[in-house]
Computed example of a mutant assay.
Amino acid sequence: MANSFKRSYKFSFKTSLYISVFLTLVVSIFSLLTSGFLIWPTLGFALVSFLISFSIIQYRVEHFIYKRIKNIYDNVSLLDASTLDPSRITTDMATLTKEVEKFAKGKKLEIETLQVRETYRKEFMGNVSHELKTPLFTVQGYILTLLDGAMKDKAVRKKYLQRASKGVERLIYIVKDLDMITKLETGDLHLNKENFNIVELIQNVFDLLEMKAAKKDISLVFDLAYEQPIMVYADMDRMQQVISNLVVNSIKYGKKGGTTEVSIENLIKNKVIIRVSDNGEGIEKVNIPRLFERFFRVDKSGSRKEGGSGLGLSIVKHILEAHNEKIYVESVFEVGSEFSFTLEKTKNKTKTRSKKIKS
């Protein structure tokens, strides 16, 4: 409810006026029949009766409305009667109606928000169970097969244990990603910001993912040779995670023989923008708004052929938001995609990590 109301005396004034006029007429007639009409006592009586009537009616009306509204609060579980202040009750019904309508709209919005969150929670729990179910059943299947007698064959035992180990690794990978997102969302993850060379960091990511890209014959390149270091101020380890996730994503959905290209441009005086683009599958327009949701996949097939936890882009978004930075997506289906994000340039020349490199 609003903090202030317009207090109305119109009802009490009119009612008191009617009562005082009626009583004055009765007293005047009685006085006229008994001892003659006395103007000043009659006017005094009229004034006193008006003031008394006005005070009683105003008090009773306000008290009546307050009690009725309190009953509404008590009867509706969504309302808290302790928040109802008697001094805020008005006899202006138009004002009261508007305030109640405003309150109802606010509660409706809260209920709708809770419904959206409940839907999201159910979807999230369904996604988590789905992601964990596959590797768990895989590990269980291999272990049960070994326990049923396959462990006597050394070759089969080694193969099945290796596959079970991969299933466990996938479980650990998903749990770590979930833990990362939880820390980012609750603000428990501390950012260790420092000045470092973003060109060097990107090259390190290329070196780490070179073999993964080679399996699909995808080239990891810069848009040009960066001879001089480009210094930025951020958490170096988290930025490596951001760039790694974006590059891995472009490799997963890239076309065989394609290219993943990274460019670094000055955006404004204290910002640079890093672009990760590819000529892969691209993303349909309808899917772009949901790309950064947890567990959302463009590929809806049950096979999940590209693997991953489905949390990579969500982690990227949360890390950048923790840096107060933005990420952008542009994509044309079956043509390619570009993910870009901003970073703050270096603040000073202390605590830096850099060296000249060529792409």
Rank of each mutant, 00 (worst) to 15 (best):
N3L: 09
Y173R: 05
E330I: 02
Q241T: 14
S277K: 15
L51V: 15
L146N: 06
S309D: 04
T186E: 11
L47T: 09
I288R: 00
A322D: 07
T145V: 04
F196T: 09
N197L: 04
T90W: 06
G307A: 08
L311T: 04
R290F: 11
E227T: 08
T145I: 01
M211C: 01
R304E: 11
L201G: 07
S277L: 10
L267K: 14
E112A: 14
I218N: 10
G257H: 06
K271A: 09
G310L: 06
R294C: 09
E118A: 13
S28R: 01
G257P: 03
T145D: 08
L191K: 14
K355L: 02
K355V: 03
A225Y: 10
K269L: 11
G44W: 00
K107E: 13
A214V: 05
L209W: 02
I315E: 07
A164S: 14
S82D: 15
E284I: 03
T83F: 03
S277Q: 13
D74V: 05
F54S: 06
E306N: 03
P135M: 01
S87M: 05
V262E: 02
V298N: 03
F222A: 06
I29E: 02
S12K: 02
V316H: 07
N279P: 05
D153G: 05
S301W: 08
V242G: 06
G257A: 09
Y253T: 03
V332A: 12
V205H: 11
Y59E: 05
N75I: 04
M211T: 14
I29Y: 08
A214N: 14
K216R: 12
T42F: 07
P86R: 09
S31L: 10
G167M: 08
V248E: 15
T90I: 10
E265L: 13
S82R: 14
W40R: 07
E123Y: 02
S165F: 07
R68P: 11
L201K: 08
S53W: 07
R238G: 03
R353L: 12
G187L: 06
Q140H: 06
K176G: 00
A214G: 03
E330R: 11
M93H: 07
L311R: 05
Y59M: 08
D80T: 00
F196D: 12
K215P: 01
I264E: 07
D217A: 14
K98Y: 13
E227P: 00
S87C: 00
R170T: 12
P41G: 11
F295N: 05
D179G: 13
K252E: 13
L267G: 03
S303F: 07
Y328R: 09
D237S: 14
G257S: 05
K326Y: 04
